[in-house]
Simulated scan of single mutants.
Amino acid sequence: MHRHRELCARAVDPLEIAAALEAHGMTDRTAAHFRHRDVFSLAEEMYARVPRHSSDRSAPPASAHAVPEPVAGAAAGPSRLLTLVLLPALPGALCAGLLAGLAQAPPGRARTLAVVAGVLAVLSAVQLCLRHGPLRSPRPAGVAVRLATLWLLGYAVLGDGLLDAAVRGGPDRLWPVDTATALGLALAMWPAVLCARLFTGGARRRLARSRGLGEFAAATRPLLLASLTCYLAALAGLLALAGAALGAPPALGGAGALGALLLLARLLLVHGHRATPTVALATAAGVELAVLCSVLASRLPGCGFLAVPAETLIEVCGAEAVPTLACAVAAFALLGRAVPALSRASAHTDPGTR
């Protein structure tokens, strides 16, 4: 109580103290040394024995269960409309406009400049979505996360065609670009923001109603899985819609696995976990890069054996199998880490109390 006196004095609920103790490494086994069955029981005694600040005693009773809303829900009216509707729709709108313009533009230098400007505009819109609203991280993502994400997105659009051409001895000309996957992923920013809002807001409401850490974790785990499922369903629909509009089948497996990986990584970053998503993203990007490099390196004298695994996989399953396997394995591994990490109360408390 002496060590955490300021926290106890400002807390509006025992669960807030329990979440902060959990964030500091307190476990039920540690709480047993203080003759309590779990962390929540210890937090209840600390909450009862440490006097509140005078400002807390004068607060209305309803504030005892008030839980800070996420950033996207804190502002009402125009701000909510901006962060939940307008900004998430911007990447898809810009990508659709870029593809429509390129369909009418003649080949040449102006077309190339338009492509570069359009891609930068789409990436800037995505960055805006990550800086505002439910996907905003308390700390900026590291360089490794940014580079790995850019590589994964670039490979989703350009990688399959490049790898297939490399296996056939090329590329001797411009390989095909998966525009349907690019449009589907850009449009999927909107459901990603909404599903992140659904999970974060639902977890905060459960934090206010829960009577213990175990009850909160049991209620939060299915919420995370439901949010991820809703996003994947929306992503599959948008990819199919983009493929029908552009007359080109998208890479559903690779794009779906990539979408799940990126959403899980971002949720972990939003809730204060940096190491695990960095490793997962870097691993998936590294696998894709290693496969592509092995095919290219096999052209060196005596190095033909390097391309055998990649060529066998592509011959059996197609070039799409490489990003599908890389992202799916990383996404499943990240899901196994995200379920316990995001079902802890300490992941959903106000950052000032962590």
Rank of each mutant, 00 (worst) to 15 (best):
125 A>N: 09
43 A>H: 11
71 V>N: 08
181 T>E: 09
267 L>I: 02
42 L>D: 01
110 A>F: 02
142 G>N: 02
278 T>N: 01
207 L>G: 03
324 T>D: 08
253 G>Q: 04
234 A>V: 11
302 G>I: 08
14 P>V: 04
58 S>Q: 13
200 T>Q: 13
243 G>L: 10
315 E>N: 12
317 C>W: 12
322 V>P: 15
140 P>K: 06
290 A>C: 10
180 A>I: 11
276 T>M: 01
342 L>V: 02
79 S>T: 12
200 T>G: 10
260 A>F: 04
95 C>V: 11
173 R>D: 14
218 A>Y: 03
254 G>T: 09
154 G>Q: 07
56 D>L: 14
201 G>L: 07
229 T>L: 15
169 G>T: 15
277 P>S: 02
273 H>D: 03
37 R>S: 09
198 L>E: 05
64 A>M: 14
124 S>K: 03
70 P>W: 02
209 R>Q: 09
267 L>W: 13
300 L>N: 06
293 C>F: 15
28 D>P: 00
104 Q>Y: 10
275 A>H: 00
200 T>I: 06
322 V>Y: 11
285 A>M: 13
13 D>L: 14
224 L>T: 05
265 A>W: 07
347 A>Y: 01
138 P>W: 00
39 V>C: 02
18 A>S: 02
202 G>D: 06
348 H>V: 05
289 L>R: 08
163 L>H: 15
286 G>E: 07
267 L>N: 01
66 A>Y: 13
127 Q>R: 14
219 A>C: 07
32 A>Q: 13
326 A>I: 11
282 A>F: 00
131 R>H: 08
53 H>V: 01
157 V>Y: 11
287 V>A: 15
116 V>F: 09
146 R>L: 12
335 L>S: 05
183 L>Y: 05
313 L>E: 13
163 L>P: 08
50 V>L: 10
144 A>L: 13
58 S>D: 10
197 R>D: 14
33 H>C: 05
330 A>W: 00
301 P>I: 15
61 P>R: 15
67 V>W: 13
